[in-house]
Design a protein around this nucleic acid. Structure first.
Lengths: 203, 203
DNA sequence: CAGGCAAACGCCACAGTGTGGCATTTTCGA
DNA sequence: TCGAAAATGCCACACTGTGGCGTTTGCCTG
C-alpha cells in the first residue's frame, strides 16, 4: 500500500485500524445496499463504532467512501512536490499521475475501481467527487506555479478534466494495468479536441 | 427578464410569485447571514411560507439560491437548440453563451453576480454549483452531438471549465458589460494554455 | 351562480446527518 | 505506579428533507 508504515504508538495504530475497518467495510456495504439508502448507523453497527468516533475520523458519510481517492491524490501531491518541475505543465501533471499510479498496489486498484462505480450511482457522492477535484485543482495549481495566469488556471482545469475522462474510459474494464494507457491516450487527445466539430444530430 | 411572460392562470401566477419571492429574498438573506449559518426557517419566516410549500417549489436549500444560474443555462440550452450547428464545437458553444448573455437583463446580472459571490463563500453551495455544471455538460454534449468520442467529451469539459474561468475573471468587477469580453478572452486563451510551462516556485 | 374537482397549502411527525457536552476508559510518559 | 492526554461512548440537539392528511383556493362545468 502507499501508506507509509509508521508503527508509531499503539494508540495511533488502533485509531488507524478503526479508520481502515470503516473504509473497507463502507464501500462494499454502500455498493450492496446503495449509498443514499444505507443509513450511517448500518455501517456503525457493522464495525461496532459509535457515531461520535466515526465523525472524529471522517468529516462526512461521503468522506469514508473516498479513502482510495484521497490516497491517490495525497500521493500525487507528494510526487509533485518531489518532481523536478520543468517543461510543459500538462506533461508534468500527466507524468506525475503516471508515477503515482505506478506506486499504487493491486489491492488499491480494486478498492479504487469499486469506489468509482459507487460514485457513479449516487448523486451526493458524485457531488462530493467534484468538490474533491476542485480542491485538488487548487493544490496542483499551487505546485505547478501556474495559478496566477488565465492560461495556467485553464490548464489545470483541463488536466483534471482529462484525468476524469481517462477514468471514464478505464472504468468499464477496470483492469489495473490499463489505466496508464487510458491516461496517455486522453492526454494525447487534448490538443486535438479543440478542433472537434459539431455533428448535426439526426434523431 | 428572460422568463417568457405567461399570465396563464391566476393559480400559476400566484405560485410563480412565491417562487420569485423566495429566490429574491434568499440571496440577500444568505449573503448577509452566511449560507450555512442561516436556517431555512429564517427564509420561510421572511417570506411567510411553510416548509412544505418551499420543497414543492425547490428541491433543496441550495436550489433556491441558484435561480439565476438556472435561468442562464436553461436559456443557453434553448439557444443551442435553435442555433444552426456547424463548425468548431468550441466556437459554437462560445457563441451560444454570448447570445445567451445578450438576452439577459440588467436585473438578472445583479442577481447573478450576487449569487456567484455567495457561492464562493459557502462550500456546500460550491459543491452544488459543480454538480450543476456537470449536469449542463451532459446536456451540452447531447446538443453538440460530441458525446461519443473522447475528444468530444474532453472539449465539453474544457468549454465549461473556460466558462467558469471567465466568471472568475469577471466577478471582481462584476460589470454586466464586461462579461462577454471575459468570455472571449478566456476562449481565445484555450489553445495557448496547453503550452503553458511550469514555473519553478521560489517561496 | 352553484357546486364539484384538483391543485396548492399548512400543520404534524419522522428519518437521517452532523455537532457539542460530559463522563469513562485506554494509553503514554515520567 | 500515577497523573495527564487522548480516544471513546452515550446523550441531546439543530437542521434538512419527506410523507401523510386535512383544509383552503382557484378553476371549470352544469
Amino acid at each position: 500500500m502507499t501508506a507509509v508504515q509508521q508503527p508509531a504508538s499503539l494508540r495511533e495504530r488502533k485509531k488507524l485500524r478503526t479508520r481502515q475497518a470503516l473504509a473497507e467495510t463502507a464501500v462494499p456495504l454502500f455498493t450492496e445496499r446503495g449509498f443514499d439508502e444505507t443509513p450511517l448507523d448500518a455501517l456503525l453497527d457493522a464495525v461496532e463504532v459509535s457515531r461520535r468516533t466515526f465523525f472524529r475520523n471522517f468529516r462526512s458519510k461521503e468522506d469514508v467512501a473516498f479513502t482510495a481517492v484521497e490516497q491517490l491524490w495525497s500521493t500525487c501531491l507528494l510526487v509533485l512536490d518531489d518532481a523536478e518541475l520543468s517543461g510543459r505543465a500538462a506533461d508534468v501533471f500527466r507524468d506525475a499521475m503516471l508515477t503515482t499510479l505506478d506506486r499504487m498496489g493491486e489491492d488499491w486498484y480494486a478498492h479504487f475501481s469499486a469506489t468509482l462505480r459507487l460514485v457513479e450511482q449516487s448523486p451526493s457522492l458524485h457531488g462530493h467527487s467534484l468538490r474533491h477535484c476542485a480542491a485538488m485543482r487548487v493544490e496542483v495549481s499551487r505546485r505547478l506555479g501556474v495559478a496566477d495566469s488565465t492560461e495556467g488556471r485553464l490548464l489545470v482545469e483541463f488536466c483534471v478534466a482529462a484525468w476524469r475522462c481517462a477514468l471514464d474510459e478505464w472504468l468499464p474494464g477496470g483492469e489495473p494495468g490499463e489505466l496508464p494507457g487510458c491516461v496517455r491516450r486522453v492526454f494525447d487527445a487534448m490538443p486535438r479536441c479543440l478542433d472537434a466539430e459539431v455533428r448535426p444530430e439526426a434523431p
